[in-house]
Write a protein that binds this DNA or RNA. Structure first.
Lengths: 355, 355
DNA sequence: CTGTTAGCGCTTTCAT
DNA sequence: ATGAAAGCGCTAACAG
């Protein structure tokens, strides 16, 4: 014998929509409407229902809702690495925006390869997600295809050079790297290395920017690109400086793919008695918190990571609402934070003049 | 007319259990069993079914599964702050362990207050979670109560001093702080500050350890506890050193509640020309990556955060399996990483001898 | 604006 | 070892 339609207040018994409906003297669907589309229920009834919901402590069963409505109400976030501190700010932005909505977040951390990305995307899709946020790493054929055929809005995060599947938000990494590298050149550095870890799309774009700036100045030397395909970290930065100086004792500066690398390089310079910025200039990327207070403080490129996360969710919500469709591409811009680590005063050789 | 029971391979049409069943010439429930309890299906049939599943690209609908089985298959992770870099390692451990299981993770980031924690816990519970990982901050009455009445296994993370609701994993923060502070004393520091941010349970335990070590040495001075209730960061560390030296020019060392604070203090010392470790000793907590390569390298307490996350999920899985019930308390231990930032050679005053 | 009916796709009994 | 029937709790679609 079912007792669901009977009122009860016991702790562990689950209270269902029918319970609320019975208690309020209406039908289940009306309660459902009062909760999801308040406008479609007459004000007095609505209030009575909401009061009953509260009194009974009713909480919707999201699985049932997902099954019936074919919308799970979660946003899948595909992110390459939880290893990178810069992900935290993005995640905070996401979580903060989500809190005032009725969405939930599901993170997927692909193993490493493109296949796993595709697999996890397919899995997301099979669960009727409300949206996908894709912080792509490799984006092979399969993944690109999947994103185009996605059964829900997709926001791609962080690089705007390519044509996004649908919506994209972030910054132009190529240009950011170009500006940063140009800054190093302007400060008089000539043998400027590119130091990186994991070589994902955004890292490659930054590589392009770095290359372009140095080419223009007639200073490009491919052998100055020092990278390993692993997670960036301060300790890796220290190692890579060592390697750089071994291979290129004349290197006098570095653009780092991430601030933790930059920090590690700074430490290693100090250890070796290399004067930063006089002997060696360092520019990082992402402007993580320590950079601003480091001694010397680290020049870096500030990327609005928190806001990117926040607004990515926002775009998804607006896309779902159908009104005020969000723009396809949102460029939040970056800011070069010029600090002491590149504040060299003397210029060793004249800068060649180029178009 | 329904067409679900008819075979089809079209891209966007959802393939259901019945589709697989029809294709394999068995009933739906048998397919369901083959997937979840392979042992209960005869080997040849099982193989045929699994092959069909693969060929049709069937993916279970988790919402339907959750509704029917009253088990959502997700683990709720309640975490105080995404602001703290030390959370990343924990999260990686969680995600890595979860990948080889069929669980999923749902993160909840409580707003700040205890009420929000309780609210989010209640929400988790209403969704039939497979388990809860609680990285508690405040744990008021309501929260403690909820955890005890939880309808699923609960693992509390990170401090072992209290009686856990059920299972707990982590380290003894009190003792860790005691060891760290004792180390500072042994190195000859006498006016040792405690520098902290957010004052959660674990921070309070560390405070106790700090206090205890200094009391034993007859060196405790409550006014040397410098803290603000906010997120820890390197920049905060720099600020707090400034404040410390203003209020206590004779301070000669600090135990920091987190390595980012320690890093910020180190930078600020360098800026002021304070020699670390000679003039000022710094010990951090958590042993984040930069600490090992900093110049001077930072003494810190290594906490196996990755492993804690990994094994927390493991405990949940074992608890669900009912066989091999996991131990109630798992102490993973800590390790004091003695480095340069506390490597003072001369002891200014004799250490008072105490019980 | 409110209600009725009929499932969503799966798993739980309980048979066989 | 396999299957039939009966929902899980909710919402879409259609009435009124």
């Amino acid at each position: 014998m079912r007792s669901n339609t009977r009122r009860r207040r016991q702790r562990l018994e689950k209270i269902t929509l029918s319970d609320v409906a019975a208690e309020a003297g209406v039908s289940a669907i009306t309660v459902s409407r009062a909760l999801r589309e308040p406008d479609k229920v007459s004000p007095p009834l609505r209030e009575a229902i909401l009061e009953t919901v509260k009194r009974l402590g009713y909480v919707p069963d999201l699985a049932a809702r997902a099954l019936a409505s074919r919308n799970s109400g979660f946003v899948g976030v595909m992110s390459p690495g939880l290893t990178n501190y810069s992900f935290m700010a993005l995640m905070r932005g996401i979580e903060d925006r989500v809190r005032s909505s009725d969405l939930r977040i599901q993170y997927a951390v692909p193993d490493n390869d493109v296949d796993d990305e595709a697999r996890q995307l397919r899995f997301f899709f099979s669960q009727n997600p409300a949206g996908i946020i894709y912080i792509g790493t490799e984006r092979g054929e399969a993944v690109r295809d999947l994103l185009h055929k996605a059964p829900c809005p997709v926001v791609e995060v962080m690089d705007l050079s390519d044509e996004p599947a649908e919506m994209a938000i972030g910054i132009d990494h190529r240009r950011a790297a170009e500006v940063a590298t140009r800054h190093l050149i302007d400060q008089g550095y000539r043998r400027i290395a590119l130091v990186g870890g994991r070589w994902d799309i955004r890292a490659r774009r930054r590589h392009e920017g770095y290359r372009s700036a140095l080419m223009q100045a007639g200073l490009f030397d491919p052998s100055l690109v020092i990278a390993v395909d692993g997670h960036t970290s301060a300790s890796l930065g220290a190692q890579l400086l060592e390697r750089l100086l071994q291979e290129h004792p004349d290197a006098d500066g570095a653009f780092c793919q991430n601030d933790d690398l930059a920090l590690g390089m700074l430490f290693e310079c100090q250890r070796r008695g290399l004067n930063v910025p006089e002997d060696f200039g360092i520019c990082g990327f992402n402007d993580l918190d320590p950079s601003g207070v480091a001694c010397p403080s680290l020049t870096s490129v500030r990327v609005p990571r928190y806001e990117i996360g926040y607004r990515a969710i926002d775009m998804l919500i607006r896309a779902a609402g159908n009104v005020n469709p969000p723009p396809a591409k949102v460029d939040l811009g970056f800011q070069l934070m010029e600090r002491q680590s590149t504040a060299r005063t003397k210029v060793p050789i004249a800068l060649p003049i180029t178009a």
